[in-house]
Design a protein around this nucleic acid. Structure first.
Length: 648
RNA sequence: GCUGCUGUAGCUCAGAGGUAGAGCACUCCCUUGGUAAGGGAGAGGUCGAGAGUUCGAUUCUCUCCAGCAGCACCA
């Protein structure tokens, strides 16, 4: 038998017979490791203990102490155990796929009867029975024809389709958990009893399209979470509960920021508090844009269909546009307009007024552009995905060779904005050429290289999103996450070769001839609405002082202090602080509670002593202790804090 | 848009085939209280909209609207 050499993490190598399994390797090292081993990493690949190793390789044996591998195995085995449980309870259910995801797994089923929330309990119970049986997990490699026939006979069409989609040279692994069988890449644990029975929970049922294709069957997906121990599960569930408290929809109500109602789905009624955040943020962005070399413009909301036809939106985006037809007695003729879903075509109209010289480039044009998009009803989400929103939009008209420099400048700009707003880190995704695209490969090469180079120069290694670019050019997406970890694209930076062409934007080059500018679409916040939603969740409502809508409440302890309260409020306002008086006939406990719930950053309590000494008792949100300070001192301190970071 | 769930007072929720309840919030009264809910009284709802079944519907059925979770979408 041929010999192979396996290299261990400590650098030592040992000789084995070819075809040895990691289980035997572990057993050979020590009896206890043989018992504790759950899987291995072989040449960087997560490897089942039962898979043979045929050639020289590096190897690391894993135990339950290796969190990453253990979680993957536990979650993956649970996916199978859940599918088995479901088929044992409802044998007519067809199985599809069940991958591991962050914190758990899901499995998609095809069953005529929908699952109910009560079913989850029954499935969990059955899963624990399976775990308690300690059924062995076994794997075999099959020929495709045999496997296809096997699944056809069992009436599992989805599995047949999956196999047909697997490249012919890849081995088909068939797994058994006891008598129950599934097609699976593996690896898995050795028996069902290795899965902790008290560290998982089925979370929810939802619809999901087969293969993610909305033209195909709607399956039923069951989500579960799982960990290696029950404390970790408890911590996770606890985290979710805490995260729910940070939901911007809940805080929006509690802080009286905004509301939404049936008559205007996907649109926001901003209340005074919320609008203060909005305008404070807008003022800040306007200053940043000015110092960033942008010129600010404003363009029409309602634009005739002709322009949208020229821009291509009428063809490609019509379903998402609010179309407005005027056909009334007072109108001479019927006009078809659309509320703008984007600002870009309008910005090109401004660019196109008069002749532009190469000396004008790069031309950075910005607009707080209000857009309306008819988003699918199921996509709406609080103020983060709406139908009426305002982008901090901007378009940079430049030459091809300026893309990299402009991208670098933009990343720097965005980074400073995010930092000022409390986001020290954010994720960047890079989407390159899709299959359907405009422009030559040569231009794409250059544009992609420019974006990547600028991003890397900024010290950012983007996540790759292959083939996800716009048809008109590659893009960078700047992603922030909400309270429960969902991704939201906020900032964006996209190269566009197409729109300048369609709308015939030109500039006169140094050579005296006409040239086509490149357009960079960019938004830093993305939209005020989404960004404020993220901002609220990121800070759990405890916004940085300068942007907090209600900054200070001055609360009287007894009515004797009322005059002094008014004086303190006046002083604070004069220092540029948003201050209000609370002289209601209520106890200080009550006032403190109410304004704490309302997330007011600073409460100044004043009673007889403070009136006497011209001091205030300062209480910061989230802190129990208070400090008595001189009034003038506090006013100047808070005046500084109320100053936006770019003006300090 | 798709699958499932939900819609009762400003908010959080209970309720039942015979036309509705709690706590908080709100208004008034008492209370002047020292850092997360002092006490009392009062007011407040075509039970999301429309249709059907029924002697009678907010409750059952259907359609629509909106929201929630996920999927799809997010040039």
């Amino acid at each position: 038998m041929a010999q192979i050499s396996l290299t261990f993490p400590d650098g030592n190598a040992r000789e084995y017979d070819a075809g040895i399994t990691p289980a035997a390797v572990a057993e050979g090292i020590s009896k206890s490791l043989g018992k504790k081993a759950i899987s291995a990493t072989v040449n960087g690949e997560h490897w089942d203990l039962a898979w043979p190793i045929e050639a020289n390789a590096s190897i690391a044996i894993h135990t339950m102490a290796d969190e990453d591998q253990a979680n993957e195995l536990v979650r993956h085995d649970l996916a199978h155990i859940m599918a088995r449980a479901v088929q044992e309870i409802w044998p007519d259910t067809k199985v599809t796929i069940g991958p591991v995801i962050k914190d758990g797994w899901y499995y998609d089923f095809d069953r005529v009867e929908p699952f109910t929330p009560e079913d989850l309990g029954a499935i969990e119970k059955k899963m624990r029975e399976i775990i308690n049986k300690r059924d062995p997990v076994r794997t075999e490699v099959w020929d495709r024809d045999v496997a296809i026939k096997y699944y056809e006979e069992r009436g599992e069409p989805y599995k047949v389709e999956l196999i047909e989609g697997i490249p012919g040279d890849e081995p088909l692994r068939m797994y058994w958990h006891g008598e129950w069988q599934d097609l699976c890449r593996g690896p898995h644990l050795q028996h069902t009893g290795q899965v902790p029975g008290d560290a998982f929970k089925l979370m929810s049922i939802a619809g999901a399209y087969w293969r993610g294709d909305s033209d195909r069957a709607m399956l039923q997906r069951i989500y579960g979470v799982a960990f290696t121990g029950k404390e970790k599960l408890r911590a996770h569930l606890n985290m979710l509960e805490e995260a729910a408290k940070r939901d911007h929809r809940k805080l929006g109500r509690e802080m009286d920021l905004f509301h939404m109602q049936e008559e205007a789905p996907g649109q926001i009624f901003w209340h005074p508090n919320g609008w203060t955040i909005y305008t404070e943020l807008q003022d800040y962005m306007r200053r940043k844009q000015r110092s960033g070399g942008y010129v600010e413009v404003n363009t029409p909301q309602l634009v005739n269909r002709k322009l949208w036809e020229e821009s291509g939106h009428w063809d490609k985006y019509q379903e998402n546009m609010f179309i407005v037809e005027v056909d009334e007695d007072h109108a001479r003729e019927k006009a078809v307009n659309a509320l703008k879903p984007m600002n870009c075509p309008c910005h090109v109209q401004i660019f196109n007024q008069g002749l532009k010289s190469y000396r004008d480039l790069p031309l950075r044009m910005a607009e707080f552009g209000s857009c309306a998009r008819y988003e699918p009803s199921g996509a709406l989400h609080g103020i983060m995905r709406v139908r009426g929103f305002t982008q901090d939009d901007g378009h940079i008209f430049c030459r091809e060779d300026q893309i990299e420099e402009e991208t670098a400048v933009y990343i720097d700009y965005l980074t400073s904005v995010y930092k000022d707003l409390g986001f020290e880190s954010f994720r960047v995704k890079f989407s390159d050429r899709p299959e359907q695209r405009a422009g030559s490969d040569d231009i794409w090469d250059k544009a992609e290289a420019a974006l990547l180079a600028a991003t890397r120069a900024a010290g950012i290694e983007p996540e790759m999103n292959p083939g996800e670019g716009a048809f008109y050019g590659p893009k960078l997406e700047f992603v922030l996450t909400d309270a429960i970890g969902r991704d939201w694209q906020c900032g964006t930076h996209q190269v566009d070769f197409v729109l300048p062409e369609r709308l015939d934007a030109t500039y006169i080059g140094a050579d005296g001839g006409k040239h086509r500018p490149v357009m960079l679409h960019r938004a830093c916040l993305g939209s005020f609405e989404r960004f404020i939603g993220i901002l609220i969740e990121e800070h759990a409502g405890k916004l940085p002082f300068w942007i907090a809508p209600r900054q200070v409440v001055v609360a009287s302890i007894t009515s004797e202090a009322d005059d002094y309260v008014a004086e303190v409020v006046a002083d604070l306002k004069a220092a540029g602080v948003r201050a209000e008086a609370d002289m209601r006939n209520e106890k200080i406990n009550y006032k403190v509670r109410e304004h704490s719930v309302g997330k007011v950053p600073v409460i100044l309590a004043v009673g007889g002593r403070e009136v006497e000494e011209r001091t205030v008792s300062v209480r910061r949100l989230g802190q129990k202790q208070t400090s008595v300070q001189n009034l003038d001192e506090v006013v100047s301190e808070l005046g500084v804090e109320a100053t936006p970071p770019d003006l300090r």
